[in-house]
Amino acid sequence: DTAKPVEPAQPSAQLLSLRSARRLMSINDVSYPAPINSPNPALNTGAPTGKLRYNKEFLLQFQRAFVEKPSENWTERVKETVGDTSEPSSAR
């Protein structure tokens, strides 16, 4: 799964979902599918609505779940800001 996807001209289903998704307001009642671990409930117990905290272990799980570049012109955007990097970007 290390093949580099060609940058899509149209937003992917994942990007479209992101753009239309609602912001989670509370998290302790979300049940995540196995093997995903919920965030540490103590972090968000009694938290103001929509002000969520996430522990590292929870956040790291997204690395494989959300892999979409943030915009259709991302490659150009990176080239403009970061420059033409000859160093290979490693997928982590």
């Binding site: 990007l15 992101l18 998704a21 996430y54 956040l59 997204f62 690395q63 779940a65 959300f66 892999v67 979409e68 570049k69 943030p70 991302w74 990176v78 970061v82 990097t85 160093e87 290979p88 970007s89 997928a91 982590r92």
Partner: peptide, 12 residues
């Protein structure tokens, strides 16, 4: 969180 990872995995 989703956007962060989208950015992170595609940055050199």
């Amino acid at each position: 969180v989703e956007e962060f990872w989208g950015v992170y995995v595609s940055l050199p």
